[in-house]
Nucleic acid binder design. Structure first.
Lengths: 337, 337
DNA sequence: ATGAAAGCGCTAACAG
DNA sequence: CTGTTAGCGCTTTCAT
């Protein structure tokens, strides 16, 4: 006859204390003698006891869990989520663990699977949403639902008080100054700049700022069309090179676009980095193996995870909204002379 | 004065039914009139009521949650988890959602953070573990802990009854036959084959089988050393090319090794794919942007996720252990003449 | 520093 | 088909 679940009462009996003492001892309450605590811990270990999270959560009202939603492109499966968002997801889970939180993760891309009310359902204490800005339906649904509890957002195509972002402007300045240092004079910007792409707009701002500061011509942003950024980058580069007075370097609004650009450049026979420079943004792992390897601006992922998570773990402290970035030298810009 | 949480009693009162009817109606019990159900649903919506998962879980004993642990390399952060495991993680979360399960995910790489007893703690109904086989400490810890509840495993360096794997042998046959079709005669195998690498051993088996079948010479597996597979692949290829009678094509045990090999090959000036063929295994996204793009064997990720998850959702049905694979033609093998 | 008692909000067994 | 009732196992007052 199999005994039912070991409860804190069983441990209490074995340790010769009350059930509430067991609870306190195992929860690390300071008002428990070290001696009592170790007796309780020994009894718990002997019986193979584990606090039942279901009961603890019901009673305390907290869940110790963070809901993390990764928004993908409409109609696509999680396999095709960008490496950037995977890295950010990983860092966010790690940051949550640092705060003693678990991570409930959901990949959502299509209407019908959108769900944000994890807090209302008692599944989590807060919500982190990250993903591609191109999925308007998802972001609109998030806006319309107005989930309760603390929320932190990365990648939304709108400005509100909940976002966390990379230092996009500063990163763009780094990128462009690197190209300038390599001797490039006509530097183009690859990326759509409009209200739907606030991150790209910030990067364009930094691009402009750096060029103006150095007295170099500022190009119009060359819009990339389509949700497939790589393909978009490929096509945009073709358009750019076909125009009169083409650039001799480009700063791409992100690595996916830059990777597409690199491909197209390779096909036209442009010599990168000897004659043509390329810098991306995001720190994509795929850029390590591209030809040539992609020089890029990488946000500090660990800090990004912490910034997102701290809005939920520490809702009362002033939130960090900007995450520092750094230049990763790989091989798509020639060495500084 | 803020009212406390809306409960099923409030909904019951508003709908003029008993509390248990509310519970049944919202849980989709078939023994509820459609008329009653819609009245309850209307009341619930009007009050903004959501079933409290904490209470439901305590009472029912189930959690509707799957714990997914991603094992990384010792001392590394989640940012450096392989793209393969990210894709598998995504597919597993998606498969869990298909079964109506939530996914609690944890990245673990170092002793001190290992935790497998999610079921004992009432956090999940089962456990999926995936990750790199090189982290012996983690896998040993898993073995030693023997967590309760259903468990499914991908990537462990040992054989037991819980693993799920790709059709490694069949995939290797596909890879090697593709190289043979391209006219290659001396095909090498890049990867360590020993008890710690059961997946590589299976791939070597398929490699051997295909070559024997076609009457071609079977090479010894060329061990790759170090946990960084890319670097290992780079070095192994150098060794292979330095040996007498070097191969004119290689099948790498996985894409990371193949990517390293491609790099080293490029540096030595070998012309891939015109004179030298390379095929990898895993379907890594980074292989899309390598030079040349990497031809590879890709497991069906969606099926992999389902196979893992079904061990937890449907513990009574005969589990699927093998996941089908397919050849992804990219560009590292020349066209069939 | 510890014990006694209450009750979190729900599901499920049992009636009717 | 619906109502009544009894807990699930814990955390947290309130005592002592």
């Amino acid at each position: 006859m199999r005994r039912s679940r070991v409860t804190s009462f069983d441990v209490a009996e074995a340790a010769g204390v009350s059930q509430s003492t067991v609870s306190r001892a195992l929860a690390g309450s300071p008002s428990i003698t070290e001696e009592t605590r170790s007796r309780v811990e020994a009894a718990a270990a002997a019986l193979g006891y584990h606090v039942d999270a279901r009961a603890a959560r019901l009673r305390s009202g907290r869940t110790g869990t963070m809901a993390i939603v990764v928004v993908g492109r409409a109609g696509s499966d999680p396999t095709r989520v960008s490496g950037f968002h995977y890295a950010l997801l990983g860092s966010t889970c790690a940051a949550a663990a640092e705060c003693g939180y678990q991570s409930l993760v959901a990949f959502q891309s299509d209407p019908g699977e959108f769900a944000w009310n994890y807090v209302a359902q008692g599944q989590a204490d807060g919500l982190v949403v990250m993903g591609t800005s191109v999925n308007r339906a998802a972001w609109n649904d998030l806006l319309a639902t107005a989930p309760q509890g603390p929320v932190a957002v990365w990648g939304a195509p709108f400005d509100d008080e909940r976002w966390v972002r990379a230092e996009n402007r500063e990163g763009a300045v780094l990128a462009v100054e690197r190209l300038i240092a390599a001797g490039h004079k006509r530097i183009g910007f690859l990326g759509t700049v409009d209200a739907e792409h606030p991150q790209f707009a910030e990067r364009y701002e930094g691009y402009r700022e750096a060029l103006v500061r150095h007295g170099l011509p500022v190009g119009e942003p060359l819009a990339v069309v389509g949700d497939d950024r790589v393909a978009a980058g490929r096509e945009a580069v073709a358009a750019m090179l076909g125009a009169p007075d083409p650039p001799d370097a480009i700063f791409a609004a992100n690595d996916a676009i830059a990777l597409g650009a690199l491909e197209a450049l390779g096909r036209t026979g442009a010599r990168v980095p000897e004659e043509f420079g390329v810098v991306g943004f995001d720190g994509l792992a795929a850029g390590v193996h591209s030809h040539p390897p992609l020089t890029t601006i990488e946000p500090d992922f660990a800090e990004a995870g912490r910034a997102l998570v701290s809005r939920i773990c520490y809702p009362d402290v002033e939130p960090t909204r900007r995450v520092p970035v750094r230049l990763i030298e790989r091989g798509s810009v020639r060495p500084v002379r």
